[in-house]
């Protein structure tokens, strides 16, 4: 028994050491990003290229998901509201749910899966095939070219994608409401804009900026620190998704508390 306990101790302490070293590494990585982002040279062309890849190439998936979310959420909410004879509140309910929570969350989770994993895998494979070293020895800054550009692109593009998802989800919802309750487009949108406030939109945008930054920085960090060949690349892509999703939920919870506090003022 005593021997067993002795065996466990170094294993545990090793795990704890690894956890805190990883945390310190991640903190230094984020600090380096904030340091490098303001210093020249600026890689504008690469930022635009990454914005295109992250934004435009995610559109089909985001459109489909947003549209289905709108339809499904409307369909699922109708029976509960109809019990109280309140199906006319559907547009209000849907708009609040989509703009405040579902739009940002669904978009961020999809982007974490699609964009986060691709960033992790791409930078990871560049790392293990010495492409990052090749940039470094040719006196260029790989951090600026690979990390800063991708994090900026995700930070700028996720809010835009969120607004687009909100719009598509509301269109999906409208089609459902229109076919069941015969509500016109103008009535539907008037009800929507009456229900949501400026604070809802701002909090949604700010939250999306935070989600975008998280997806970018986690993907880059995991890729930049990958090792052990192709196995390491797979692991980097996988952990980029898992950690991003975990952080997105935590951030959602924290932002919700702050916004509710502001709303209560």
């Amino acid at each position: 028994m005593a021997e067993e306990a002795d065996d466990r101790k170094p294993f545990l302490s090793k795990k704890i050491d690894k956890f805190f070293t990883g945390l310190a590494d991640a903190w230094n990585f984020v600090r380096r990003f904030w340091k490098e982002v303001f210093l020249p040279p600026y890689e504008f062309k690469e930022v635009i290229h990454q914005c295109y890849r992250i934004g435009v190439e995610s559109l089909p998936l985001i459109s489909l998901t947003g549209f289905i979310v709108g339809i499904v959420f409307t369909n699922q909410s109708r029976p509960s509201l109809s019990e109280f004879g309140a199906t006319s509140w559907l547009p209000s309910l849907i708009s609040i749910a989509v703009v405040r929570a579902m739009g940002p969350l669904v978009t961020a989770l999809i982007a974490a899966g699609k964009v986060g994993s691709s960033i992790g895998a791409e930078i990871g494979s560049m790392k293990v095939t010495e492409q990052i070293d090749a940039m470094e020895v040719s006196a260029t800054n790989p951090f600026k070219f690979l990390v800063v550009t991708r994090v900026l692109a995700t930070t700028f593009m996720i809010p835009i994608l969120v607004m687009y998802t909100d719009f598509v989800a509301l269109i999906g919802s409208f089609l459902n409401v229109n076919s069941n309750e015969l509500v016109s487009l103008s009535t539907f949108f008037v009800q929507i804009f009456e229900s949501i406030s400026f604070l809802d939109i701002w909090s949604s945008v700010l939250k999306s900026l935070l989600f975008g930054f998280t997806i970018g920085i986690v993907g880059c960090y995991k890729g930049y620190h990958s090792s052990k060949g192709t196995e390491g690349v797979g692991r980097a892509a996988n952990s980029a998704v898992v950690i991003s999703m975990f952080l997105i939920f935590i951030e959602e919870l924290l932002v919700l508390q702050v916004v509710n506090a502001i709303r209560g003022m």
Partner: peptide
């Protein structure tokens, strides 16, 4: 110093022209 890597380390996402342009335009 020029460093020729064991696996060439060419940038996968760039053409040969872009690979060669990369260090040139930045330096």
């Amino acid at each position: 110093i020029g460093f020729s890597f064991q696996n060439s380390a060419l940038y996968d996402s760039m053409t040969v022209r872009e690979n060669m342009e990369f260090p040139l335009v930045r330096n």
